[in-house]
Design a protein around this nucleic acid. Structure first.
Lengths: 220, 220
DNA sequence: AATATTTTAGACCGAACGGTCTATTTTGTA
DNA sequence: TACAAAATAGACCGTTCGGTCTAAAATATT
């Protein structure tokens, strides 16, 4: 069976295009593009059904590729899981980092950041930190370590905002950036669990309001 | 192969013993006792490795029973998973409820309750709400519903304490029991994730301190 | 357009999966 | 102690698992 039109083949010798992602596509070999394609199709499924719960046939179906097409690009299902987590993590991190960058004041930065968590479309199959973290903690040391890094980055986003607020005399020095970041992050992860289990955003709203209140308590 | 000494067989006609669990053992048939035995051995494994990640051979190994011994008492692996969750949930609920009962004042009740969450031995393979909730949300409607119930019970424990505090004039009526319970519960679940991923209790300590502070803010 | 290289399809593999069934053992009753 | 009923062992079942391999197809190079 032919598999043309599955992955558009961009000739290496084409003139450099206007858009970064097209340039990247051009630099990438066919195999690299297929690899990326497999990750993009697999990641949401693994995020949803879990690593153990996702089979190779799930991945074959999502990509419309046969076994050979998968294993020509990855050496194991495990590798697909690892790369899927890194992909999901960076996708979400980009959104969160952008949101922070859009704000000028500490308050704007925080509120923008919280808005990303508020909108479940930004993590429609759940938070990869939560999903992979819960599954990997007892079974997969590599992913466990990646989740650790992801949590620290996520918390640093919060503590950086608090520190920025202190520096800009927007907040009193009494706020403890580390503690604030831990309160915010843990509550949000708990609220993500509740959002998935209850299929509504009720508890998330209350949690985000509480984080805002904690912040406002230190506004000068 | 013989399997005596695996499960002590208590004769139905023995005089009623002093201890409730022995009485219960006597009332139970052999099959009921074996069923309970299988759950007790399987639940920690399923809690740890997940439902999809636990195989029947894992359960056979843990119980030292053959396939027939398992399937004579359960009709599917799914049923073992369901009953394992209910078992883990009730085990933990008992500890938490007891802790609350030991306290006389609202403050004592809350601090006792938090102490249970603080001690990771009380949930050595992780929180079943978190573990089962994350896996079941997209794949298992029955367990998803049970997790919903478990979350509501866990949160009610917190809001009941706040309401009790108001009633006893220990707290101002300004505390919102529902919101307080959501802040506390979501933060603790997030902290449990961090505890498992970082293999330490650092963030849990900070979270519990924050919950206490929120409570103390309303103490009259 | 011809050719060398890369990539993919899909048949194939052994192992492990969840689950069934019957002969045998253990248990409860008398 | 004998016997009926209940419970278990383990061989067996078809299916699916993750993974390999080769011939064919697509791609890159000339």
């Amino acid at each position: 069976m032919c598999y043309e039109n599955k992955i558009k083949n961009t000739c290496k010798n084409k003139p450099i295009g206007l858009y970064l992602h097209l340039q990247i596509e051009m630099i990438m070999s066919k195999a690299e593009r297929t690899k990326q394609f497999i990750i993009e199709k697999s990641a949401p499924i693994i995020n949803k059904k879990g690593m153990a719960g996702t089979s190779l046939s799930d991945i074959m179906e999502a990509t419309k590729l046969a076994k050979g097409g998968i294993y020509g690009n990855f050496e194991s299902k495990e590798e697909i899981c690892k790369e899927s987590f890194l992909y999901l993590r960076s996708q979400l991190a980009d959104k969160l980092n952008n949101a922070v960058l859009q704000g000028k004041t500490a308050k704007e930065k925080l509120f923008n950041l919280l808005a990303v968590y508020d909108n479940q479309n930004n993590m429609s199959d759940g938070c990869p930190i939560l999903n992979f973290g819960v599954e990997a903690d007892d079974t997969n040391p590599f992913i466990k370590e990646q989740v650790r890094n992801a949590i620290l980055s996520a918390q640093k986003r919060f503590s950086d905002i608090a520190a920025f607020g202190i520096e800009k005399k927007e907040l009193t020095a009494e706020i403890n950036p580390e503690k604030f970041s831990i309160h915010a992050f843990t509550m949000i992860e708990g609220a993500i669990l509740c959002r998935k289990v209850f299929d509504n955003n009720h508890q998330m709203k209350i949690v985000l309001e509480n984080i805002k209140n904690e912040f406002e308590r230190y506004v000068i």
